Amino acid sequence: MKKVALLLSLTALSAAAVAQDQTTGPRSGRLASSTDYSPGSSASRNNGFGIKGGFTASNFRGDDKKNFNNEGIYNTFHAGVYAQFGFNNALSLQPEVLYSRQGFKGAPMQYASRGTYDTRLDYIQVPVLLVYNFLDNVSVHVGPQVSLLTKVKEGDTERKIADDNNVYGYSYNSLDYGLAAGVEARVGPARVGGRYTAGFADIIKDPQNAAANSINNIKNGMFQVYVGIGIAD
């Protein structure tokens, strides 16, 4: 994780250094802002696509959170691509496709025989965000997000998402949906931001015994910090 953070920091510094030499846009001698161009033009700051990635602090919430011992934050990462489509100088739509490794620390008290372990959940996420530039290069983002669960690890053991043979006593919900909101700043081709995402679907489904039923009501929650680089914007 330290290596990932260092790489992101170096990327941001490099992008900022390149941006300092840019004089694009009608107002020369300064960085282009979101209001420098007419919407829909090839040079619009609210149109384009790029790559992004960063740090994720993931946890869970819900009524059954109290039934876990040693509960805590699961530190991990996310990465993916984004596109941005401008409506005008202030508003745009930004869909993304992300690989998000998340999960939570904590051991269900009802499964004490397994010991303490971390639960890792790998998702493909698709947020669709409405972006509003309240300053030239600072914006707020908010919108829905749909996520598909692709992999589950409980401790060092990879397990199936569904528990058709009742080996574990419960299955994982393969689909999550929720709401994402955050703030982003742009410097030349680089963007740096923070975002919180709350999942609305239960992580655990189909409890098949009393122990599993006691951990059925938990939902994803995570905070992301990221760096992005615009390839065309």
Rank of each mutant, 00 (worst) to 15 (best):
S34N: 09
S34Y: 03
S34V: 02
S34K: 01
T35D: 00
T35K: 05
T35V: 06
D36R: 13
D36G: 05
Y37F: 15
S38R: 15
S38P: 12
S38F: 15
P39E: 13
P39L: 13
P39K: 12
G40P: 05
G40W: 14
G40Q: 14
S41Y: 02
S42K: 01
S42E: 09
A43N: 12
A43V: 10
S44G: 05
R45W: 01
N46S: 07
N47P: 01
N47W: 03
N47S: 11
F49N: 03
F49Y: 15
F49W: 15
G50L: 08
G50K: 08
G50T: 02
G50Y: 04
I51L: 15
I51G: 12
I51P: 00
K52M: 13
K52F: 10
K52W: 10
G53H: 07
G54T: 04
F55S: 05
F55H: 03
F55R: 07
T56S: 09
T56C: 00
A57D: 00
S58N: 04
S58C: 01
N59H: 12
F60S: 09
F60A: 11
R61S: 14
R61D: 10
R61N: 14
G62T: 08
G62C: 13
G62F: 07
D63C: 09
D63R: 13
D64Y: 02
D64A: 02
D64K: 00
K65A: 11
K65H: 04
K65I: 02
K66F: 08
K66C: 00
K66V: 10
K66Y: 05
N67L: 10
N67S: 05
F68K: 12
F68L: 14
N69S: 14
N70V: 00
N70S: 04
E71D: 09
G72E: 09
